[in-house]
Amino acid sequence: MSTTLTKPLQRFSARHAARLPLMVTATLLVAMFSVGSLQYEGFFSAQVLLNVLIDNGFLLVVAIGTTFVILTGGIDLSVGSMVALSTMLTAWLVEQNGLPLAAAVPVVLLVGAGGGALMGWVIHAFEIQPFIVTLAGMFLARGLCYMISTESISITDPTTTTIAQTRVLLPGGLFVSPAVVIALVVLALAFVVLHHTRFGRTVYALGGNESSARLMGLPVGRTKVMVYAVSGLCSALGGLLLTFYMLSGYALHAVGMELDAIAAAVIGGTLLTGGSGFVLGTALGVTVLGLIQTIISFQGTLSSWWTRIVIGGLLFVFILLQRLFGGSRTEH
């Protein structure tokens, strides 16, 4: 519809188009950190950056799953609820049923992956829009939380609390939580899977053009189901990490996290129409979101709702960027 506006810009850099939002994000990250360091005392330290990761490790894992789905041109609105369900399920299994944590973790991960696969199957088999299917999944997961308990279940299990309090020491007196290590491992795995496996290639092909992918004989259905299963698995794992972070299970945990995850992917340069994006960009996106929170808390006078406004504003800017550079897909 807006061909006149976007044409010259596209011609300018068809090759760099996909990387541009990523570069903008990286620049933004450096700029935000510099401004923060100049503005606030004690901001310029590696630990501040590591704290961003500690506070957002679970979001990183969830956003990685979301990136898979968005790359295929789909969307998963159920991740926030799935995170809440995982915290609830873990707390319920460990605290009220006396299951050891080692037994609860596989159950939770299985529920997440299974739920995701089920949604993917419905989306593929019945050709219903991913949006509405995952919306149903969102309702269902949140409702199941309430069926387990409407109250928050706090966790006192010694294994869980020990893990929650463990600090992984780094050289220079720095430290991270085990959750950060897990998140980074997931990030590395996702990178390898997306860029160096057949499955990853199919994910990109599917998002690029589903009809072409099908005509090329790629396993469209299987990939779709798997992508939603990956998203579900990541949400469940993110939920476990959040359980360690919060040490409780609650149905109102992670309300709106699907938005944060989508925002992180978009800010990280993943095209919402699918087919183009980087999982490392998503990591940058999560860091940007985390830095916004950090800056707002350092500022002190700004209230927490500014976070949402700034994230919304950033989302707006990046969506505009996507339209201006390389987002020509929906036009013809």
């Binding site: 309702f139 269902l140 949140r142 409702g143 199941l144 309430y146 069926m147 149905a251």
Partner: peptide
């Protein structure tokens, strides 16, 4: 519990 409405809606 009214919160379980969500399950029915789903």
């Amino acid at each position: 519990p009214p919160e379980t409405t969500l399950v029915f809606k789903a």
